[in-house]
Design a protein around this nucleic acid. Structure first.
Lengths: 207, 207
DNA sequence: CAATTATTTTAATACAGATTAAAATAATGC
DNA sequence: GCATTATTTTAATCTGTATTAAAATAATTG
């Protein structure tokens, strides 16, 4: 008759596991990392993981859900905080990159989707598509309000998203470089967007 | 320097295998693709591959070498064909992207490096670093000749390279879209580079 | 403290996929 | 056509690793 059959002890451990798993997947890929790899990171046995997750596939799946959540948070916050489209784009980049390179743990493993079950694949792809669509909306908004120059939003979105999705491939946890990425990337990536008459540029997110 | 290296029966088949392997690795990742996956694409048996390559690891390794060659070709051709730094950057993007989305077959599997043997890992990373350095040189050249605006070349290079390295993750062989990528991406990615007084912009590679 | 529940480990099992050896087929030169 | 070499297949082995079941330990509760 207990209200919550699962104590917070459980969820805490589960979170640690997801973070460790995400880090491993980022580094070695899905089938490249064994469950032992993940458990070793935590001082556990591989078998112990099965207390928290049905199987390996669900482990990645949960990692994706976590990544999707964080990504969406960044998106919504940026839309709320920024006034012009350009500002929103710049803020989104900052927020998203911050979660990726921050202590919270890397969560960008968007490469391993083919390893998922069909159902989960569809779901994650849908989320990912909506995410892209949201970003393209920001770009369109910017074009309308005159802060962003006219452009092929689909392609521009792909270009910018790719740029930040690739970060985990070359960045490996120097906190001083993390800071540099957070400050430089939004500037670099939005510089090409600025509309002709817009002198403000991308300093929306300025320090 | 003397005669054409005759493309024997052997080398031709080996090439087919490398292309098929690269495609599989791109789609499923290194440990995600079985040798059977590769061989099935060719109407062969998995065991047959061992006639052309020592083992699976060497298969990826060779794929990387092929990718590196094509990348370097694009780089050198761009440096030769372009006059200003901006032009060279733009041309490099075009050439490189063309080989990636073209019929020649996808070769950008820069994600799977951790799967390689230490020695091969070092080698590929060295090649990759030199490639990045070459691109950064182009950027510096552009800054000097006034065609490219002052910027953090390291970060800018990372941003642009990431953008194109990510292409295989969302592009899957529509030839009409391939054309669009080839024409749009160089424009998008160089737009942010253009120096203040430079009215020519990135139309160096224009159609 | 006793009893129940939660968490982790040890010790199997099962299976996929890499690798190898020997046999079979195809190609080539004489 | 015959002998030799090149290419591919069949059939087996070997290894890693996901997964499970049962046992052991730790935590919690009454």
């Amino acid at each position: 008759m207990s209200t919550d059959p699962l104590p917070s002890r459980f969820e805490a451990q589960r979170d640690r596991i997801l973070k460790a798993a995400a880090a491993c997947f980022n580094e070695k890929g899905y089938s490249g990392t064994s469950l032992k790899d993940v458990s070793r990171h935590l001082g556990l046995t591989d078998a112990a993981l099965y207390y928290y997750v049905r199987n390996k596939e669900e482990l990645v799946y949960q990692c994706y859900l976590r990544a999707a959540d964080l990504g969406r948070e960044a998106m919504l916050k940026a839309i709320e905080d920024g006034s012009s489209g350009l500002q929103q784009a710049s803020l989104y980049l900052r927020y998203h990159i911050e979660t990726m390179v921050g202590d919270d743990g890397p969560v960008a493993i968007m490469s391993e989707i083919p390893s998922l079950k069909r159902v989960h694949q569809e779901e994650i792809l849908a989320v990912s598509r909506r995410h892209s669509a949201d970003f393209e909306d920001i770009l369109r908004r910017g074009i309308e309000d005159g802060s962003i120059a006219r452009c092929d939003v689909r392609m521009t979105g792909n270009a910018i998203m790719g740029s930040i999705n690739w970060i985990p491939k070359w960045f490996h946890g120097s906190s001083t470089m993390a800071a540099e990425i957070c400050s430089e990337f939004p500037k670099i990536l939005t510089r090409g967007l600025v509309a002709a008459g817009n002198k403000a540029g991308s300093h929306a997110s300025g320090s």
